[in-house]
Amino acid sequence: MPLTFTLDPSVDPALRDGLLDLWADVSHAGGAVGFVPPVTREAIRPELVKHFTAMAEGRTRLLVGHDERGRVAAAAFLAFNTHRLMTHWVWLYTVMVHPRHQGKGHGRDLLAAAADAARTFDGIEAIRLTCRGGLGLERFYGSCGYKEVGRVPGAIRVAPGDDRDDVIMLLPLT
């Protein structure tokens, strides 16, 4: 079943809890979304609050995918660049598909929905994201049209002695 994507859904307790569950479940499955397992919902909550604050201030937009049962199954945050010379592109952050929905094309659908959303933002010409090296994510994003435009070796410390590259990817929208 396809996911139903919504840009800027109303933030209510069900959405908040769904995002916390999604973020924790993706992290526990080894997803590169800013945490390493084990992680609790309470450890994730401050990061989600930061995203909600940025949304309330108009700096970030939220894209959520719900499954056929109405559960949060995917999400991504699109953040406007505030540097006056870089306002023509947005950041794509915290791209997540629930493990039970992975391998069904929903990641591609999420990225396509994010690109469609970004095309509706005034003056936006590209999406930029970073991903953790060593997981094959750059191949996945590349297969969705993103190009690797930079790499910082060893910039992400997953654990002592386990440093990963920070891979910078860009998707032109024009």
Score class of each variant (00 low, 15 high):
residue 126 A to W: 05
residue 107 G to Q: 12
residue 100 R to P: 10
residue 125 E to H: 13
residue 104 K to V: 09
residue 113 A to Y: 04
residue 81 N to G: 08
residue 134 G to P: 01
residue 55 M to A: 08
residue 151 R to T: 00
residue 85 L to R: 14
residue 126 A to P: 00
residue 57 E to P: 01
residue 137 L to M: 06
residue 133 G to W: 00
residue 99 P to W: 01
residue 78 L to E: 03
residue 57 E to M: 01
residue 140 F to N: 05
residue 131 C to M: 01
residue 73 A to Q: 08
residue 103 G to C: 12
residue 93 Y to G: 08
residue 99 P to R: 03
residue 91 W to D: 14
residue 55 M to R: 06
residue 70 G to S: 04
residue 114 A to H: 10
residue 147 K to V: 14
residue 136 G to E: 03
residue 93 Y to S: 11
residue 112 A to W: 04
residue 56 A to I: 05
residue 70 G to A: 04
residue 122 D to E: 15
residue 142 G to K: 02
residue 68 E to A: 15
residue 125 E to N: 11
residue 134 G to N: 07
residue 102 Q to K: 11
residue 77 F to I: 11
residue 144 C to K: 05
residue 124 I to H: 00
residue 149 V to Y: 06
residue 128 R to L: 11
residue 64 V to I: 09
residue 76 A to P: 08
residue 129 L to T: 02
residue 151 R to S: 03
residue 116 D to L: 15
residue 131 C to R: 01
residue 122 D to P: 14
residue 87 T to E: 12
residue 70 G to H: 02
residue 135 L to Q: 12
residue 84 R to M: 13
residue 66 H to T: 09
residue 98 H to F: 08
residue 128 R to A: 10
residue 150 G to L: 01
residue 99 P to F: 02
residue 77 F to Q: 12
residue 144 C to E: 10
residue 75 A to F: 03
residue 56 A to N: 07
residue 149 V to R: 03
residue 140 F to P: 00
residue 72 V to F: 03
residue 97 V to L: 04
residue 119 R to C: 10
residue 119 R to K: 15
residue 59 R to C: 06
residue 112 A to G: 10
residue 123 G to C: 12
residue 129 L to P: 02
residue 72 V to I: 02
residue 122 D to F: 11
residue 120 T to W: 07
residue 64 V to H: 03
residue 136 G to N: 01
residue 85 L to Y: 14
residue 88 H to W: 15
residue 138 E to T: 09
residue 102 Q to T: 15
residue 122 D to G: 11
residue 72 V to M: 05
residue 88 H to Y: 14
residue 146 Y to G: 00
residue 64 V to G: 09
residue 107 G to S: 12
